[in-house]
């Protein structure tokens, strides 16, 4: 095997072949706001649960696009739905429904 001298850490490897188009379409259908996130991270900055454990809606959306559905769910499992993120979102995303929808769509086997 030729060693090219560089490589990826397995955990951060992105495999877009695994991207679940059907589920993403379903998500966008029940919460179209999933598309308009600009990843500013305001939601994560104010997150109530985020003060205790890693919780990030921004990362969850990115993880879904990077075909890491389980990681996305993990980023949201501590969410208390308090709604602070919807108050600060500059894009006016209905964050609470987006979180519930991601949970509904991606935790269904």
């Amino acid at each position: 095997m030729v060693d090219f001298g560089f490589g990826l850490v397995p955990s951060s490897r992105i495999n877009l072949d695994l991207f679940d188009k059907d589920k993403y379409r379903e998500l966008v259908k029940i919460e179209p706001d999933a598309r308009i996130c600009m990843a500013c991270g305001s939601c994560t900055a104010v997150c109530t649960a985020g003060k205790f454990v890693h919780t990030s809606l921004r990362e969850a959306i990115e993880d879904i696009l990077n075909a890491k559905n389980d990681k996305a769910l993990e980023s949201l499992q501590a969410c208390q739905l308090c709604g602070k993120c919807s108050m600060v979102c500059p894009r006016g995303i209905n964050t609470r429904h987006l979180i519930l929808s991601i949970n509904k769509v991606y935790s269904a086997k």
């Binding site: 109530t48 205790f52 208390q80 739905l81 709604g83 609470r96």
Partner: peptide
């Protein structure tokens, strides 16, 4: 310095069990 949620938003979303924990 910030606390945790009161549980009402969870109740409103119908997540009674989660609300009970908070």
């Amino acid at each position: 310095e910030g606390g945790i949620c009161c549980g009402r938003p969870l109740m409103l979303a119908g997540r009674k069990e989660a609300a009970a924990k908070v």
